[in-house]
Design a protein around this nucleic acid. Structure first.
Length: 811
RNA sequence: GCCCUCGUGGUGAAAUUGGCAGACACGCCAGCUUUAGGAGCUGGUUCCGCAAGGAGUAGAGGUUCAAAUCCUCUCGAGGGCACCA
């Protein structure tokens, strides 16, 4: 008997499913059918090649798209390359090959790997973010942001990675380390392009409600946006008409504000400089704070530092008391007003600061109601309570006092967000040039849209300079241009865009990849958007997914797209851990190579195993032993179908088993529902159960049952399914076949096993009609030997009956 | 420190969402098959017990006729945020 030979079968079908002219996977833009847009997070084509983690997500989306195609939907399932940015560039530097060549080579390798896995992409829509015809539109979107006042240049404190030699976005800094290379970031003050994502904070938060996303991701975005409601209050500076504005969420504690603290960068320190008595020690402190490394700041998180601005006092607008003003770097210049009112009694940080410097602590909110005197606080009391030591407000619940106080002192209610604007310049070569020209006379001039794309010039030296400029600055020919407005001498912006730029809108370009007039054709956009299913890792929860939503909303506002949100449903595949249960990494030596697995077991086995491992969203350890089971499963299907084909001549087609027929319909139902709910592991186990039964009843198989099994298998193991389909005498492609329907009646058994419990414990089981009534069941059950045994002489107190399932006799 | 998620056999996991715990698979054990191949087939496999039976879903308590599932606390793992006033 011939053996299941995945290598032979898979290469046979992969040759037919050619990238160039395989029309079945090509989505039709003019179809009248219902559309289904299934998209993966596209990879950056690293030199490492495809990872088993890629295989997991990509298999899931491949199953979805093959399934929906068989359901008669017009499926769009594209693939592309996120090839700009640090990963590609760092790799190029390491290997001393130009990034462009590296990317081309890696794309070729990735393509080969994806094809070996049998993924059914619409290759006619392949995109590459480094293609000038692609990034022309990335630059175009930047110009729209500029036009809308959403892109601006500013001198801002930035995170600088000394190893990658570039500025990083807030989102790229994890625990004060560079997300890419793990180096501790430095703080620098640099002139940068910044995108005003904060203008969209409220909408980015609000619209999370309409998204069908994992709660975890929504929660992370919510926290990252960090909305907090509070008030802005003004403290007059004594002997001056200046005022210090503070932001607080606890205006109710204003009576307990015993001093103010300014951030080191606060403008008032310079404005009032002359009045400061201890100028030299203040200067010292500011200087230290400026040069403090992130490491020192982290170490100091517990013990607070600061210095008093002697000679300057402010008036607490509620108590009218004169209070001191301090400077400390625990106050952030970039949040709120850069100044706070300090209430040591009701804020942990303020408490620590007051203890450090012996400043007064005044408790004004008390947990208990009728207290005459309060014991000395050993820690800040941050809970709710009633007002105390607060004049007219005494005895009032603090949340009511809050609004009163804001009104009384003329404060303004305000909402603040933790979200910061997106620092958009990178001092690196391998990115989209920012399409801006700087003219001595005209200032910042956008490159006219007709001159796009601004091509990234080929250079010999693409290593980062380590300065505030990218390597592009060295190319005089490219940098020096005529100003588009006045024709005078001008220079190009030499910074490039961050790696996230290209992925902010790629889902739109898949819809219309060769359009030279527009980013995307309106009709096509309207037909395909939004993306129905988006599958990728959770690591992009606050990076790519937030940025892309932001750009999409801007595009919506200027009428370029028709939906509020880009990705309707998001599914996160969980990490595949190494066999040791640890995250896969080269240094641990626990990386599993998908190529090796394909070599040994075939792509179908690998696909199936990764889907069978466990729930898609869960992190789960790789076990090479486990893939053997799926290989065996496929072998058995192969043997069953081929064996059936050989025996068919001798068998009559009519001797079908009713039980098998029922199981078949149950399985169709289970697999169908499981695919739609991304429960691939249980879908596969249902097919295994079916196969076990079919093997036991070989003599009762029919062509129809074999064909149904093959169709169910098709989205999961497309090569083997197609091969067996052909072996069964079909010339068609399974992609064009219709997904099997199930007969609801056949999925329901007329008889069920009734569980018999006494006092909640399982004592017996009995096969009964599904529609048995409580009365019938009681009569039947009370006559059973086992039940009588357990009842003894006692009478049932109560009988619980769950129709078609269970009966519980309580005694 | 704060927030979120999760703890089920030797392993990956399943459990119609409050109704038979451990489906399906890996591994292991026994047997069969001249069988040297990560082969196939049959049976067994949560724990204690010869059995009847009992115990059992990290631990303790609670709600319920009934809890892996709901509630409270404790412990443990993973992830996110981290001076955001």
């Amino acid at each position: 008997m011939s053996m299941y030979n995945p290598k032979k079968i898979e290469s046979k079908w992969q040759k037919r499913w050619t990238k160039e002219n395989f029309e079945v996977w090509h989505a039709d833009d003019k179809s009248k059918k219902r559309k289904m847009y299934v998209m993966d997070m596209f990879p950056y084509p690293s030199g490492e090649g495809l990872h088993v983690g890629h295989v997991e997500g990509y298999t899931a989306s491949d199953i979805m798209s093959r399934y929906y195609r068989m359901r008669g939907l017009n499926v769009l399932h594209p693939m592309g390359w996120d090839a700009f940015g640090l990963p590609a560039e760092n790799y190029a530097i390491k290997k001393k090959i130009h990034p462009k060549i590296v990317v081309e080579k890696n794309v070729k390798n990735f393509t080969k790997q994806l094809r070996r896995l049998g993924f059914g992409y619409d290759w006619q829509r392949e995109i590459n973010t480094t293609d000038p015809e692609y990034y022309r539109w990335t630059q175009w979107i930047f110009l729209q942001l500029l036009k809308q006042g959403l892109a601006y240049e500013a001198e801002v404190p930035v995170n600088w990675c000394p190893s990658c030699k570039t500025v990083l976005a807030n989102e790229e800094v994890i625990n004060d380390k560079c997300d890419r290379c793990g180096t501790l970031v430095e703080r620098k003050q640099l002139k940068q392009w910044v995108l005003k994502i904060t203008a969209y904070a409220e909408r980015l938060l609000e619209d999370l409600a309409v998204l069908d996303w994992p709660e975890k991701v929504k929660e992370m975005q919510k926290h990252w946006i960090g909305r907090s409601e509070g008030a802005e209050l003004e403290f007059p500076v004594a002997d001056s008409n200046l005022k210090i504005k503070v932001f607080t969420t606890r205006a109710d504690t204003l009576p307990g504000a015993t001093y103010l603290v300014l951030a080191p960068e606060h403008s008032l320190i310079t404005t009032l400089g002359a009045r400061i008595i201890n100028q030299s020690s203040v200067k010292d402190y500011l200087e230290k704070a400026k040069h403090k490394s992130e490491l020192e700041r982290m170490a100091e998180a517990q013990t607070k530092t600061g210095v008093e601005l002697k000679g300057i006092t402010a008036i607490n607008p509620y108590t009218q008391k004169e209070i001191p003003v301090w400077v400390s770097d625990y106050v952030l210049s970039s949040y709120g007003t850069g100044a706070i009112m300090s209430v040591p009694a009701h804020d942990e940080r303020d408490f620590a600061f007051a203890k450090e410097f012996g400043l007064p602590v005044a408790q004004v909110v008390s947990e208990k109601k009728d207290q005459q005197e309060l014991p000395e606080l050993t820690e800040a009391y941050v809970g709710d309570g009633v007002m105390f030591n607060a004049g007219d407000l005494n005895g009032l619940p603090n949340h009511i006092a809050k609004d009163r106080i804001i009104e009384l002192v003329g404060g303004k209610k305000r909402i603040n967000y933790k979200l910061r604007d997106w620092i958009f310049s990178r001092q690196r070569y391998w990115g989209e040039p920012i399409p801006v020209i700087k003219c001595e006379k005209c200032g910042v001039v956008p490159v006219p849209e007709k001159d796009l794309p601004v091509l990234l010039p080929r250079v010999k030296n693409y290593q980062p300079t380590g300065e505030a400029e990218s390597p592009l600055a060295a190319i005089k020919k490219w940098v020096n241009v005529k100003c588009p407005t006045c024709e005078g001498p001008a220079k190009r912006e030499t910074n490039t865009m961050p790696q996230w730029a290209g992925s902010c809108w790629y889902y739109l370009r898949y819809l219309d990849i060769s359009n030279k007039e527009e980013m995307v054709d309106k009709a096509k956009e309207k037909y395909w958007m939004p993306v129905d299913v988006y599958i990728g890792g959770v690591e992009h929860a606050v990076l790519h997914l937030l940025y892309a939503r932001f750009w999409h909303k801007v595009l919506f506002d200027i009428g370029a797209v028709s939906t509020k949100e880009p990705f309707q449903k998001l599914v996160n595949q969980g990490l595949i851990l190494g066999p040791d249960g640890q995250k896969m990494s080269k240094s641990r030596g626990n990386v599993v190579n998908p190529d090796e697995m394909i070599e040994k077991f075939g792509a179908d086995s690998l696909r199936l195993y990764e889907m069978f491992m466990g729930p898609l969203e869960d992190a789960k350890p790789w076990q090479t032993d486990g893939i053997v089971g799926l290989y065996r499963f496929l072998t058995r299907i192969y043997n069953l179908v081929i064996g059936f084909k050989k025996a068919k001549e001798k068998l009559a087609d009519s001797d079908k088993s009713v039980a098998l027929d029922r199981l078949l319909h149950k399985t169709i139902k289970k697999v169908t529902e499981d695919i739609e709910n991304f429960r691939f592991n249980t879908a596969i186990s249902a097919m295994m159960i079916l196969l076990n039964e079919m093997e036991k009843n070989k003599s009762q198989l029919s062509v129809v049952s074999c064909q149904l099994l093959v169709k169910l298998l098709a989205p999961f193991a497309p090569h083997l399914a197609q091969e067996l389909w052909e072996q069964l005498g079909n010339e068609t492609l399974l992609d064009n076949e219709v997904w099997p329907e199930f007969d609801e009646k056949l999925t329901e058994d007329s008889e069920v096993e009734l569980i018999i419990q006494v006092n909640g414990r399982l004592r017996d089981k009995v096969l009964v009609s599904k529609v048995i009534t409580q009365k019938e069941a009681e009569e039947l059950v009370l006559e059973r030997e086992k039940v009588k045994e357990h009842l003894g002489k006692k009478k049932p107190k109560k009988i619980i009956f769950v129709p078609g399932r269970l009966i519980n006799i309580v005694i």
